[in-house]
Design a protein around this nucleic acid. Structure first.
Length: 560
RNA sequence: UGGGGUAUCGUCAAGCGGUAAGACAACGGAUUUUGAUUCCGUCAUUCGUAGGUUCGAAUCCUGCUACCCCAGCCA
């Protein structure tokens, strides 16, 4: 009986399907191999979803995906990063079961293979200095020259490598190099370094080793050791592929993994490089790695994005080899689409203006029924207190409104969501002419939002009873950078020139009491504003909400 | 001037010699107690460009152009 092969969704799956059909492979095994030297961002999420997604899709073919810490550089890596990486992958919804690996666990094997290479005459200990190395390497257009140590006896290299490993030499003194071709047009093949001396304790295995393998050497071997079939990485490794293959072929390892490269994710109005992200964090432009403005997984999580919305996004952007910049609107669409269906509604006034209803019975408080989610009648109702003094949004009143402004204005009637119709009768101003309060009358017949005469009211606005309002701090986020394309900057500019100084706006809001009772995981829609959820620092007596994403705003757009 | 890649709608992206999917964005219009949602409709005679092969080309061939990556003892 033959298993049915899934239909491919991108060029990588095309390759996998071909391999399965041709019999080149009988199973599918991928891996996510981060270096624990920074926090994961949404670009990594693309890779995580791709690798785990393939494993899941090809489950009938033993589809599996490992997590492997690519920890070959003790100078940059740390346990803190490992922990955050694992937490992020798990949060995204993926399970690597017991397949949590570390390149550092393979060091002995790497070492043994290195000795094999030396014995084969395919690697040698080189004593050129770093500067000499650069000089001997040649340039993009000129061939390199052979190192004077290239043809030293195998026994000598063996001895020297053993002594390097024993710690006899200082850093930079010697290097183990692969013997390939100094005149290769591919610079990666010009006798690349495969081991260097680093007298720094490794965060996991301490000072067991003083020689550390290079990525180009460790990666193919790690893949091979784990039985990886398809080793997916980003485009910049494309010209490392001949080297990846060279190690596996030279060592005559059977059933070799295949490296496949795809384009990394870029998003409009933000940056994805670890270096830049680190700079933003260290310069305190942002509040740590989980700042909600950052495209880090932890930032997106703190902002309120759901794992499902990020997976959906990863699915929609596709996988290809062309450099691209994905419109941030697509990410926004994904989270809106999910939350529109699931988020309970509530009312919050972000920029409050006092409204007094002059014909409302003194001191009367009425509980009105409001739908929790009008798009989901099953969700039921919540009670909201209504009274003669309310807060409304400052932008929902205009003394001299333009045409087609449906909200409150002198003499204009508006519907208060789930409450009553009110008509503006007076505008109260301070000495400087600022509107400080407005007076309205309400129509007792309009309770709940409709009247017996069925008259039409174009404007519907949200409100909060002043006496019952709860104060809340609300964080409103904008793009981190002002420039859409941050991957290609104009001459003589640098990323920081485009930092958006107004990427965070804090508002002192008045919110309905219901919001005091929601739990820390609940994402709510502040009607007519967007989707919000409690910040990690929020508490029931000091509410703090983060705006995950705003609602689409065709009126605001039209005004521009 | 070497090597490796990529070019299909504003942005992603299908297409694999048989006559340009889809999504986001945008723009109309309907519905609406969120100017949200939903719903209907519009949005590439053309696939970087110039030739060639073919009955037929985004798909094959040739030339050209643009952009990205590579000269760490980083990954």
């Amino acid at each position: 009986m033959s298993l049915s092969i899934p239909s491919p969704a991108n060029f990588i799956e095309d390759i996998i399907v071909e391999d399965l059909k041709s019999g080149k492979r009988t199973n599918v095994h991928t891996r996510f191999p981060p270096e624990p030297n920074g926090y994961l961002h949404i670009g990594h999420a693309k890779s995580i979803c791709l690798n785990f997604g393939i494993a899941h899709k090809f489950a009938d073919f033993n589809g599996l995906c490992n997590v492997r810490m690519d920890d070959t550089n003790p100078a940059k890596e740390d346990i803190e990063y490992e922990d955050s990486i694992k937490a992020d992958v798990r949060w995204l919804g993926f399970d690597w079961e017991d397949r949590e690996y570390y390149a550092s666990d393979y060091y002995q094997k790497f070492y043994d293979y290195a000795i094999d290479l030396i014995k084969m005459g395919k690697a040698y200990v080189c004593e050129l200095t770093a500067e000499q190395m650069t000089e001997y390497r040649g340039t993009l257009t000129e061939a390199g020259r052979n190192s004077p140590w290239r043809d030293r006896p195998i026994e000598e290299s063996l001895d020297l490598f053993a002594r390097m490993t024993a710690g006899e030499f200082p850093e930079g003194k010697m290097l183990l190099r692969a013997k390939i071709d100094m005149s290769s047009p591919n610079i990666n093949m010009r006798d690349p370094a495969i081991y260097r001396i680093r007298k720094i304790p490794h965060h996991r295995i301490g000072d067991k080793w003083v020689v550390y393998p290079m990525y180009d050497y460790a990666h193919p071997l790690s893949d091979w050791i784990e039985g990886i079939t398809h080793s997916i990485c980003t485009l910049e490794f494309e010209d490392h592929r001949p080297l990846y293959n060279w190690f596996l072929e030279t060592l005559e390892l059977p059933n070799r993994p295949q490296q496949i490269e795809f384009a990394r994710l870029n998003l409009s109005y933000t940056v994805m490089s670890k270096r830049l992200l680190l700079q933003l964090v260290e310069a305190k432009f942002v509040d740590g790695w989980d700042d909600p403005r950052l495209p880090t997984i932890s930032g997106l999580r703190r902002r309120g994005y759901t794992p499902a919305s990020i997976r959906e996004f990863a699915d929609r952007i596709g996988v290809a080899k062309a450099d691209s910049i994905v419109d941030i609107n697509l990410l926004w669409f994904c989270i809106r689409d999910e939350l529109n269906a699931t988020a309970p509604r509530a009312m919050a006034v972000l920029d409050p203006l006092k409204v007094k209803i002059t014909n409302w019975p003194e001191g009367k408080v009425e509980m009105v029924q409001a739908q929790i989610n009008p798009n989901d009648p099953e969700a039921g109702f919540r009670e909201v207190p209504f009274s003669g003094e309310l807060w409304i949004e400052r932008s929902d009143f205009m003394e001299d409104p333009p045409k087609k402004y449906f909200r409150l204005a002198p003499g204009q009637e508006v519907r208060l969501i789930s409450g009553y119709y009110v008509t503006c009768t007076d505008v109260i101003k301070d000495d400087e002419g600022n509107v400080v309060e407005i007076h309205c009358t309400y129509d007792p017949e309009s309770k709940g939002g409709t009247t017996p005469d069925g008259r039409r009211v174009r404007g519907t606005i949200h409100w909060v009873s002043a006496a019952h309002a709860v104060d809340a701090k609300v964080n409103l986020y904008e793009h981190l950078f002002t420039r859409e394309n941050m991957t290609n900057l104009p001459p003589d500019t640098k990323p920081m020139d485009f930092i958006n100084e107004n990427s965070l706006e804090v508002s002192s809001a008045k919110v309905e009491p219901y919001l005091q009772s929601i739990d820390a995981e609940t994402r709510v829609q502040f009607m007519r504003h967007g989707y919000f959820w409690p910040d990690k620092e929020s508490s029931s007596d000091a509410l703090v909400f983060n705006r995950i994403v705003g609602l689409k705003d065709s009126w605001g757009k039209k005004k521009k």
